[in-house]
Design a protein around this nucleic acid. Structure first.
Length: 598
DNA sequence: GCCGTTTTCGGCCCGACTGTTTTCAGTCG
């Protein structure tokens, strides 16, 4: 950002951005190892200069280059970049010619009418800047994936219902299943765009139209979410779908790959390089792809570049292209693979539905089993169960199973607090009576990294622990997770045969998808849990499946894709102390049919 | 600042829309 504001070489700026993304994608462990071994430069995107700077920053906590850069630019200029419509060039003009160094300065300059007098600005720019400042918090806000879905779904259904529309999809980070979404990118295949644009910009949920043209429109929805509509011909659709789905890193790598094979690739199509260059010089842009390669869908596009189909969730530029080339991408878990969930709450603690209501809802999903894990006594705020009440609940669960009222088997569990010192909130005898134990941190979240890590690892080492609930306790867009050494916790879980939850509550999606791929490769087993507090909340398991897919998880590394019989056997063995190192060895295909046990 | 089966120099993705222009620059995605 500082280099941008300085007006430095745009390609240099891009190199820094690319380098930053590379560093972000590394675990702390690997980053440190590579710095110590001097192998940072082996990673694409990190050269001599960046490796040197990263090393200096890592060793000393300071970077001379950065300090000098920062000193040369007013700190407050950076926040101007957040104002939509203002880029580095305009900010430099405002700073250089009007002496604007802060948002407050800018507001004053606009209301004085001085901005409109600048070359390249006018009345309208001035108004837009003021409006953008006014709304910048609401506009810059990201939205939970689920909130975005609730906004997108009716619009998508509406678009698909229009007679002119052949295909419609939501692309972008939404399609890639990011945990939060910045805007919605609708893409439509049509030969008659006008009425579609007209329909889109006149929806009642549209608060403001920010752009409207022949082939695209942008609106601001009442929620503050921006929604863009792109319209292309059916022949272009797969190219644009891929392009708008991204991510940026993935697209850059795909284009490089296309170029290496003699193709110029863009959102418009795929054409031979020489032709694209020649036509661009003669005709300009779009016509360059008139003789584009005909392709039916995204799979055809990947195939043209010698790649297996890459699911949207994996398109983050994190090695998916290399594996697609070898047809070695994992077969990702699907919603239909889930046969039950653990970690759910009832009216016994802070849930809103009774045990029987939860069981009925689980049965409606066709699940073979449902785990009940109400809060333990320490979670007073959630009406956690004391020993007596937990005994009563266990009895009720056993009775429901005996009565065979539901086709879904109920497991008696608990979400047992890990106390600040790492001890569990129930005694060993009581824990041993349960079918399984979810251990979670709910209090003293501000503990330092070392204490928190030791606390959680101690919980994991308890012989009764079955799975670790919501690793960091984060609430997306609201509260940072606790500070914990994730790698150490993962290693401890694997060593103790403890499963890691993927909490599918829309606010959590914790453990983060960025950790799962490597963790699963090491042998960590996942359990996708909705952490449901209502019967309707059980449906959130779908968000967990989306996140698991984003984390490269396959059915085999997920506990609750196993049949009831397998899960029962595994839990029994675990409680007898016979299982160590996870359940990866058990092949689901070879198991008995869980339905026998209903 | 990074990169290399055209290269160690000379490239680096590119088109739509807006507002300001009077043919185009800046921003965005």
């Amino acid at each position: 950002m500082l280099l941008e504001l300085k007006g430095d070489n745009p390609f240099k700026i891009r190199a820094y951005q690319a380098g930053a993304r590379v560093v972000e994608s590394l675990s702390e462990e690997e980053l440190t190892r590579r710095i110590d071994a001097g192998t940072l430069e082996e990673i694409k995107g990190i050269g001599e200069a960046l490796a040197g700077k990263i090393g200096e920053l890592h060793r000393s906590g300071k970077l001379d280059f950065y300090e000098k850069l920062r000193g040369s630019i007013p700190e407050s200029l950076r926040e101007l970049l957040q104002i939509s419509g203002l880029g580095p060039k305009k900010i430099r003009a405002l700073h250089g010619q009007l002496g604007v160094t802060s948002v407050a300065d800018l507001v004053k300059a606009c209301t004085d009418g001085r901005v409109a007098e600048l070359a390249g600005f006018g009345e309208k720019s001035q108004e837009k800047i003021l409006a953008a400042i006014h709304h910048r918090e609401a506009y810059a806000r990201r939205h939970l994936w689920l909130s975005a879905w609730e906004e997108a779904e009716p619009l998508l259904a509406g678009l698909r219902g229009l007679p002119q529309v052949e295909q419609a999809e939501v692309c972008g980070s939404f399609r890639r299943r990011m945990e939060t979404v910045g805007d919605l990118d609708f893409l439509v295949a049509t030969l008659e765009p006008r009425p579609v644009v007209e329909w889109f910009v006149t929806r009642p949920v549209v608060q403001e139209i920010t752009a409207q043209g022949e082939t695209k429109a942008s609106v601001r929805l009442q929620s503050g979410l921006q929604a863009d509509l792109r319209l292309v011909s059916p022949a272009q659709f797969p190219f644009t779908l891929h392009h708008l789905t991204g991510s940026k890193d993935h697209n850059v790598q795909m284009r490089q790959r296309a170029l290496a094979r003699g193709w110029s690739m863009s959102e418009w199509g795929l054409s031979p390089v020489e032709q694209a260059v020649a036509m661009r010089q003669e005709e300009g842009g779009r016509r360059a792809h008139e003789q584009t390669r005909a392709i039916r869908d995204e799979a055809g596009l990947f195939a043209q570049l010698g790649l297996a189909y890459i699911p949207p969730e994996l398109r983050e530029g994190l090695g998916e292209i290399e594996l697609a080339e070898k047809s070695a991408l994992p077969r990702l878990v699907e919603e239909a693979d889930i046969r039950g969930v653990f970690h759910n709450h009832t009216t016994w603690s802070d849930g809103h539905n009774t045990l029987a209501e939860m069981a009925a809802a689980a049965e409606a999903f066709g699940w073979e089993y449902l785990g009940i894990a109400d809060h333990s006594a320490a979670s007073v705020q959630a009406q956690g169960l004391d020993e007596k009440r937990l005994h009563e609940q266990i009895a009720e669960i056993r009775a429901l199973n005996l009565a065979q009222k539901f086709n879904t088997y109920l497991f008696a569990g608990t979400e047992c607090d890990i106390r600040p010192d790492g001890r569990l909130d129930y005694g060993d005898e009581l824990l041993a009576e349960l079918d399984y134990v979810v251990i979670s941190v709910h209090s003293a979240l501000q503990q330092n990294r070392e204490d928190m890590t030791r606390r959680i690892v101690r919980g994991i080492e308890h012989p009764a622990a079955t799975m670790l609930g919501h690793l960091t306790g984060r609430l997306l867009l609201e509260r940072e997770g606790c500070d914990v050494d994730v790698d150490r916790v993962i290693d401890a879980a694997i060593a103790n045969g403890v499963v890691m939850e993927l909490n599918a509550n829309p606010w959590r999606l914790d453990m983060d998808w960025r950790h799962w791929r490597k963790a699963a490769e090491k042998g960590l087993i996942c359990c996708i849990n909705p952490d449901a507090h209502t019967a309707a909340g059980l449906a959130h398991f779908r968000l967990g499946v989306g996140t698991a897919r984003k984390g490269w998880l396959t059915k085999n590394s997920i506990l609750n894709t196993r049949s009831l019989a397998e899960v029962k056997r595994w839990l029994e063995q675990r409680r007898a102390g016979a299982v160590h190192g996870g359940i990866a060895a058990g092949r689901p295909e070879q198991s008995t049919n869980g339905k026998l046990h209903k």
